[in-house]
Computed example of a mutant assay.
Amino acid sequence: MKKLLLISNSASQGQPYLGYAAEEIGRFLGPVAQDVLFVPYAAITYSWDEYVAKVNNALGGVGVNVTGLHTYDKPLQAIASAKAIMVGGGNTWALLKQLQDMGAMKLIRERVLEDGIPYVGWSA
C-alpha cells in the first residue's frame, strides 16, 4: 500500500511556512510523526541544518519531529530503517544530484513504493 502526501508548495499568502498543511501532515504521519527522516538537499537560501530547524518549527505544534538525512554517518542505513520519509522543496536539481551521488534514489523508491512507509514531499 502506498502512503503518499504530495503538497504543491510550502507557503501560501498570509500563512506561516507549511501552515496550511501542518495539521494534515500530522494526521497523515500519525504514530510515526516523532520519527521522520527529512531530506533537506533542495535547500536554496539556508543550510541543511537551518532547513531541518525550519521544518521542525513549522510542524512541532502538530507533533511532527524530523531529523535531517545529512546528519547520519550512514545515510543509506538511515533510509533503510526510516519509519517515514519527508522531502522538502527548493532546488530540484540540487536535490536529485545529491540523492543520485549518494545512491539513494532507488532505496527511497523501494521504501516508499514497496515497503509502504509514509512519504511526504512538497515543491521540488
Rank of each mutant, 00 (worst) to 15 (best):
L18M: 14
G14W: 05
F28Q: 07
Y51W: 12
A78R: 04
S12C: 12
I25L: 04
Y17A: 09
V66A: 08
N65I: 02
L18S: 08
Y72D: 01
A11I: 03
P31M: 13
F28M: 11
A42N: 08
T67W: 12
V52W: 01
G30K: 10
V52H: 05
G14M: 15
P40W: 13
F28S: 07
K74I: 12
L29S: 06
V62Y: 00
V62S: 00
P40E: 14
D73F: 04
P40D: 14
T67Y: 11
I25A: 07
Q13I: 09
A42R: 11
E50P: 00
V55C: 08
T45R: 12
Q13P: 00
F28K: 04
E24V: 05
A11K: 09
Y20R: 15
N56S: 06
T71F: 00
Y20Q: 10
A58H: 02
L37T: 11
F38V: 04
T45K: 15
T71Y: 01
P75S: 10
L29P: 01
L69Q: 03
P75M: 10
K74P: 00
N57D: 14
F38T: 05
I44S: 13
V52G: 07
S12E: 15
L69D: 02
I44N: 11
L76G: 02
D73M: 05
V52Y: 08
V64A: 08
G68H: 05
T71S: 09
P40G: 14
G14H: 10
G63W: 02
I44G: 12
G19Q: 01
A21S: 10
I44F: 13
A43M: 14
L29N: 04
P16S: 14
L18V: 03
N57I: 01
G30L: 09
V66H: 09
Y17H: 12
V55G: 06
G60N: 06
S12P: 04
L76D: 07
I44A: 15
S47R: 07
D73A: 13
G68E: 06
Q77E: 05
N65D: 00
T67M: 15
Y17I: 08
E50L: 06
K74H: 11
G63Q: 01
R27I: 04
V36S: 06
N57A: 12
I44H: 14
V64F: 05
T71I: 03
D49P: 03
